[in-house]
């Protein structure tokens, strides 16, 4: 947990001051969206909350629903 917080604090320190200084608001918004997603996923991983795999969903769609599959 402590490593996660340190890593994400480091990411903010590296990126945010420069983005604010340059007034790159669009970049800051994109950064914030990905940052929140990344931090939420990291937190879920650290706390042992199951993270759904996109590939499992895709496998279900392709193999079970559409029936496309190699024997």
């Amino acid at each position: 947990m402590i490593f996660l917080l340190l890593i994400y604090a480091f990411i903010i320190i590296i990126n945010v001051p420069e983005l604010i200084k340059k007034k790159e608001w669009r970049e800051l918004i994109a950064f914030s969206i990905l940052y929140i997603i990344g931090f939420a996923l990291g937190l879920m991983y650290v706390l042992g909350i199951p993270i759904p795999s996109p590939m499992k969903g895709l496998q279900h769609l392709i193999v079970e629903v559409l029936g496309i599959k190699y024997p």
Partner: peptide, 9 residues
């Protein structure tokens, strides 16, 4: 700006 957050994801 997207490199590090994407790396985390």
């Amino acid at each position: 700006p997207l490199v590090l957050p994407l790396a985390g994801i």
